[in-house]
Structure formats: structure tokens, C-alpha cells
Write a protein that binds this DNA or RNA. Structure first.
Lengths: 100, 100
DNA sequence: TAGAGAACTCTGTGTTGCAGAGTTTATATT
DNA sequence: AATATAAACTCTGCAACACAGAGTTCTCTA
């Protein structure tokens, strides 16, 4: 089993976990305070996740304020679940892994 | 709670987890096959971990062959346990964290 | 008109991770 | 004696990354 380096990165791991748990769209602002990232940084991480097909990003306006909402995709959920399984494996020494 | 970036890196996470589980010295060669890292890379990761005080590295000779053995320290065990707790927190959405 | 907030994009800097080459020491092989 | 092999490195690039911070667009509010 292999680590998913896209998901493993700490900021993205927080984002993916939050989205996975929420199971519904979350706002940019929410993710920002949750992850502690700056605007630019968060935008870039979301681009990475979107590029991987793990999240979708929708922009609309509420009244006149822009709103960006992020939702985890099916592929994202699967990749996340797989990575969590990988972590469990590694952390519990469950892998008897001798790759030699 | 904060991520431990030293431990979080995938190769080092594997190493720390293996050492923590083994609870005794492990050989360089073993860690190499286990982590999949190249010689140089593994050496450098071990330096990082040693520099952080998470492992001790002992060199000796068995017969005439050099042997490097790596052992997790008390501080290493603590840091590892804390990071695992952090991961559990993040992964289970246990942190209601709003850092705003 | 002057802020303020949302959600960026862009640029620059510093840090990493990694492969691969070269090094040391010692044994085994021819 | 010469060669090869193994262990465990160090060193040198290179490419990717994370991050801060500045600048931008749009709109509302004071």
C-alpha cells in the first residue's frame, strides 16, 4: 500500500478530513480558519485537490458577496479512505512489509 | 494540537512507526527495505530524526561488517504518540477546531 | 469616497526530497 | 595481488513544494 502524497500534506489532510466528515459543501472562509492557511495558500491547495479530482469548487454569489464552496468528490472520498487505511496500516505496524 | 512535520513526512513516519512498534534497535538495512528509500536518502532522514532527538544511531562491527542500528528514544516515543493522537484528531474530525 | 470583505492570482524565497555518484572499510573470490 | 561485493554513508545537484505577502476584482457599507 502506498501513501497518497497529495492527501498526506498537512493542510490538505485537514481540508480533506473536514470535507469528508462534513459530507457537504464547505465555504472557503470556513476552510481557511480551519486550516490556518492564508488566502493564497489555501487557494493553491484547493487547486491541487481539484486538479487531482478530489474536490469540486463552485463559485456563486449570495446577494452580492462572492462565495466559494468546496465539496469532496466520490474519487476524493475513495482516495481519502484509502489513505486513512494506509495510515492505520503504517501506524499499527500492521504491514509486515518487507519489500526487499 | 499541531502536526509534527518532522514525523509526518512519509519515509520518516514509516521509520518512526517501525521503531516504535519494534521497541528495540533496528538495522539500517532493515529500515531501508522497509522504507523503500535509497541509502543516501535514508541516511539523511535518520540524521533529521537524530537531530530532533527522536532516535539514536549506533555504529559497530559484527565480525568485520559494519552495522548501523537505530533505536527510538523516549522523546521520540512521546513525539510519535503525540503525532498519532493528532492524526486521530484530524481524521475523525474530533477537533471542533475553529481557529478564527 | 473611503474602507472592508471575499476570493483569488502572481511572484519570490526558502526548504525539501530525491536520485545518483563517489567514499570508506572489510571480507570473499580468483 | 587484484577485483568485486556489501554496508553505510556524504555530497552534489535538481526539481518540487509550501508559504507569505502583495496586488486585483467586485460589491457593499459607513
Amino acid at each position: 500500500m502506498e501513501a497518497n502524497e497529495i492527501i498526506h500534506q498537512t493542510v490538505r489532510l485537514k481540508i480533506m478530513s473536514a470535507l469528508n466528515t462534513a459530507n457537504e459543501a464547505m465555504e472557503f472562509t470556513r476552510l481557511k480558519s480551519l486550516s490556518g492557511a492564508t488566502d493564497g495558500n489555501l487557494g493553491s491547495h484547493l487547486n491541487t485537490l481539484e486538479g487531482a479530482g478530489y474536490v469540486t469548487v463552485e463559485k456563486d454569489f449570495v446577494g452580492k458577496k462572492p462565495r466559494t464552496r468546496v465539496t469532496i468528490t466520490k474519487a476524493g472520498k475513495q482516495a481519502f479512505a484509502r489513505h486513512v487505511a494506509y495510515l492505520r496500516d503504517v501506524l499499527e505496524g500492521a504491514s509486515t512489509g518487507d519489500a526487499s
